Deep mutational scan, measured.
Amino acid sequence: DEEIEKWIETLLKRNISLRVNGKDLEIGSEEFKEWVEKFIKEV
Score class of each variant (00 low, 15 high):
1 D>S: 10
1 D>C: 15
1 D>I: 11
1 D>Y: 14
2 E>S: 12
2 E>R: 13
2 E>L: 11
2 E>I: 10
2 E>M: 11
3 E>R: 12
3 E>G: 09
3 E>Q: 10
3 E>D: 13
4 I>W: 14
4 I>S: 03
4 I>A: 04
4 I>P: 05
4 I>N: 01
4 I>F: 08
4 I>Y: 09
5 E>K: 13
5 E>F: 13
5 E>W: 15
5 E>C: 11
6 K>A: 09
6 K>W: 11
6 K>V: 05
6 K>M: 08
6 K>G: 05
7 W>K: 02
7 W>P: 00
7 W>A: 02
7 W>T: 01
7 W>Y: 05
7 W>D: 00
7 W>F: 08
7 W>I: 06
8 I>G: 01
8 I>R: 03
8 I>E: 01
8 I>S: 01
8 I>P: 00
8 I>L: 13
9 E>R: 07
9 E>N: 04
9 E>A: 09
9 E>P: 00
9 E>I: 11
9 E>F: 10
10 T>M: 15
10 T>Q: 12
10 T>S: 14
10 T>C: 15
10 T>I: 14
10 T>A: 11
10 T>F: 14
11 L>H: 01
11 L>C: 07
11 L>Y: 06
11 L>I: 12
12 L>S: 05
12 L>G: 02
12 L>F: 07
12 L>M: 05
13 K>P: 03
13 K>R: 06
13 K>D: 15
13 K>C: 15
14 R>C: 15
14 R>L: 15
14 R>W: 15
14 R>V: 14
14 R>G: 15
15 N>R: 01
15 N>Q: 12
15 N>P: 14
15 N>C: 15
16 I>C: 15
16 I>L: 01
16 I>N: 09
16 I>H: 04
16 I>M: 02
16 I>A: 07
17 S>Q: 09
17 S>T: 11
17 S>R: 07
17 S>H: 09
17 S>I: 12
17 S>D: 03
18 L>C: 10
18 L>F: 12
18 L>Q: 00
18 L>S: 00
18 L>H: 03
18 L>Y: 01
19 R>A: 10
19 R>E: 06
20 V>G: 02
20 V>Y: 04
20 V>M: 05
21 N>Y: 05
21 N>D: 08
22 G>I: 04
22 G>M: 05
22 G>F: 04
22 G>Y: 05
23 K>I: 12
23 K>R: 10
23 K>F: 05
23 K>A: 06
23 K>Y: 12
24 D>I: 12
24 D>R: 06
24 D>S: 06
24 D>H: 05
24 D>E: 12
25 L>Y: 06
25 L>H: 06
25 L>P: 02
25 L>M: 10
25 L>F: 10
25 L>C: 11
25 L>G: 06
26 E>R: 05
26 E>A: 09
26 E>L: 08
26 E>C: 14
27 I>C: 05
27 I>Q: 04
27 I>T: 05
27 I>R: 06
27 I>A: 04
27 I>K: 03
27 I>N: 04
28 G>R: 04
29 S>E: 03
29 S>F: 08
29 S>Y: 04
29 S>C: 04
29 S>A: 06
30 E>Y: 07
30 E>V: 10
30 E>N: 11
30 E>T: 12
31 E>H: 09
31 E>A: 12
31 E>R: 07
32 F>W: 10
32 F>E: 00
32 F>Y: 06
32 F>V: 04
33 K>T: 06
33 K>H: 12
34 E>N: 12
34 E>D: 12
34 E>Y: 10
34 E>S: 09
34 E>W: 08
34 E>R: 14
34 E>M: 14
34 E>H: 08
34 E>K: 13
35 W>P: 00
35 W>F: 08
35 W>M: 04
35 W>S: 00
35 W>A: 08
36 V>Y: 05
36 V>S: 01
36 V>T: 02
36 V>Q: 00
36 V>F: 07
37 E>Y: 13
37 E>F: 12
37 E>Q: 13
38 K>M: 08
38 K>T: 07
38 K>L: 08
38 K>S: 07
39 F>S: 01
39 F>D: 00
39 F>I: 10
39 F>C: 10
39 F>R: 03
40 I>L: 12
40 I>G: 01
40 I>F: 11
40 I>S: 01
40 I>V: 07
40 I>D: 00
41 K>Q: 10
41 K>P: 00
41 K>W: 04
42 E>W: 15
42 E>V: 08
42 E>I: 13
42 E>F: 14
43 V>I: 13
43 V>E: 04
43 V>T: 07
43 V>R: 07
43 V>K: 05
